[in-house]
Amino acid sequence: MTKNKIIGIIVAVLIVLSLVVVVWADVERAFIPGNRIAVVSLTGPIMGSSGGGILAPAGITPDLVRRLLEQAERDGSIKAVVLRIESPGGAIAASQEIGDMIRDFEKYIVVSMGDMATSGGYYISAHADMIIAQPGTITGSIGVIFQHLNVDGLLEKLGIERETITGGEHKDMFVTPLTAERRDILQQITDEAHDQFMRTVAGGRDLPLSEVRELATGELFIGTQALDLGLVDLLGGRQVAIDAAAELAGVQDPVVIELAPPVPSIWDLFLGGGGILEIVRARLLGEEFIMLREVRELLNTYSLPRF
C-alpha cells in the first residue's frame, strides 16, 4: 500500500467519524433534557415589518418573534424563556400576532419589563405566564389611539394636486377631512380594538373584565402601581425574571443564554430598508426624491389605529 493510499484511507475514516460526532451532537441538542433559560430581548415599536438601518433593524415584528421563539422551542435544552420587553406599543394586528405566539408557546415565558412596556408592549406581555417589572417601569396605557393626518397643507406646499376617483361611498375616507359620519365609523373601529385589548388583558391576567375596564383608560402606571392593580406579578429585574422562569420550569442551577436576533441577509444589506442601495439612491437623486417617495407612500397608506 502506498503512502498516498494510507493517507487517503486515514482521512476518509476521520471524516466519517467526525460526521457521526457532529450529527450526534445536533440530535443530542434537540432531544436531550437540559437546564437552559433563554433570554430574548424585544426592543422598539411593534410593527408589521422591520424598519431601521442596515446593521440594526429596529422594532419588534411578528417575524422576528416567531424566529426567536421557534429557535427556543426547537432546542430541547431550553426549558423556559425570559422576554425582555422595552416597547411603547404599536400596530394592533402585529401585537395580536405576537401575543398569540407567546400564548401558544409550549414552554414557560416570563416577561421582564425594562424602562417601558406600554400599550402594545403590555398587550403582548399579558399573554405570558408571568410578568415582572421594575418598581420604576412605566407600563399600562391600555387603550387605542387613532390619528388621521390631514396632508393637504403639505401637498399644497409641495405643489401637488390630488384627484380622487372612488368606487364605494367611503373609499376616500382618509383623503378629505373627516366628516362626522366617518368619524363615527372610525370611533367604532377604535372602540372594538379597545374592547379586544381589554378582553385580552382580562383573560391573560385572570382579572374581571369590569376591573380591567376601569384601568383601561390609556393611563400610564408605574411598576409599583401596576403590581397593586394586578397588571404585573412581581417587582424586580432580569435576574428575578430568570429565577422565576427557572422555578416555573423546575430547573435548578439554570444556564442562561441570550438568543440573538437573526443576522440580516446579504439582500437586506443591499436592498432592504435603509440598505446600501437606498443610501446610494439618496446620494444620486437627492433628498427631495426620497421625500417625494415618502409622500407617495403616505398617500397610498391608510391611517391605522394603534395600541
Binding site: 502506498t2 503512502k3 498516498n4 493510499k5 487517503g8
Partner: peptide, 19 residues
C-alpha cells in the same frame, strides 16, 4: 491510473505532482 483513494491522498500529501 492511480485510483481515487491514492489520488485523494496525493492531493493532500503531494499536491503539485498530483494536481
Amino acid at each position: 491510473g492511480k485510483g481515487i483513494i491514492e489520488t485523494l491522498g496525493g492531493v493532500l500529501a503531494r499536491p503539485i505532482s498530483t494536481i
